[in-house]
Design a protein around this nucleic acid. Structure first.
Lengths: 148, 148
DNA sequence: GTTCATTGCGCAATAA
DNA sequence: CTTATTGCGCAATGAA
């Protein structure tokens, strides 16, 4: 007699489209309608669930739909992860760029500041009160005075 | 005539331990040892594969082990994704910090440069050629020229 | 209620 | 051989 139910999934390896020859039945003694079986009425709605009408036409269809959705969802998920990873790389690069720029600006600033200092010193050295008096013999000047 | 195969997974929802009443057998006519059966010896190793000795003790054990491994692997994977996402956030913050710093440095530079210009103008205005002629007009030089 | 999207889980193939 | 990964289907659940 028939056999072995292809296990449900059994997708041997890669291709398993309509390979399933005879698959069906399940010793499930399901009393059609658990709800309408005994003397119970079914007013609002509250039954467990007909587990799953296997081998049902509509069942198979829903499964297939879901399988598709699942595949789609997973693809997205994977892609998103990839994108995120790439984002990390981009941000890292950007960071390096920014740090380089900072380094450069800092250097420029430092140079300008040094110029200022030097100039200030020159002024102090060459200071010559417009009106005669006062100390007027400043040191010839000083070079390479660096403060910070 | 029993079939049933619990479908393999059938983990109805959350608990499905020994729910399966009569499940077993499989019309698998497997000759014990495919390798040692005929007149074939088993020197190196190269046989297809006894599909899967369902309901085998050792089988069940291997499955369980694998399920565990799978769970572990997936947990890691998920965690890694999370970490990556967080990395993105950290890098973004860092980026903002750096950009802010750049803005500040740029401002400082700009101020210093303006000071220079102003000073240069002052010099030019007060310039008083000590000895009559002589080119003494310093090139005003560039104003707020920032490359890059 | 239905449909699609997500998610945890087990299976099996295969990589390590 | 063992574990780690990966693709896949199932079912429960969430969201529209």
């Amino acid at each position: 007699m028939n056999r072995t139910i292809p296990n449900g999934k059994s997708h041997a390896s890669s291709a398993l489209p309509a390979a399933v020859a005879g698959l069906q039945q399940v010793p499930q003694l399901i009393p059609a309608h658990p709800t309408s079986a005994g003397g119970k009425a079914l007013p609002p709605s509250k039954m467990k669930k007909p587990p799953a009408d296997k081998d049902s036409e509509e069942y198979r269809q829903r499964r297939e739909r879901n399988n598709l959705a699942v595949k789609k969802s997973r693809m997205r998920s994977k892609q998103k992860a990839l994108d995120t990873q790439q984002r990390v790389n981009e941000l890292k690069e950007e960071n390096e760029r920014l740090e380089a720029k900072i380094k450069l600006l800092s250097k420029e600033l430092s140079v300008l500041k040094d110029l200022f200092l030097e100039h200030a010193h020159n002024l102090a050295d060459n200071v010559q009160p417009p009106a005669g008096a006062g100390g007027s013999s400043p040191a010839p000047n000083s070079t390479s005075a660096n403060g910070q």
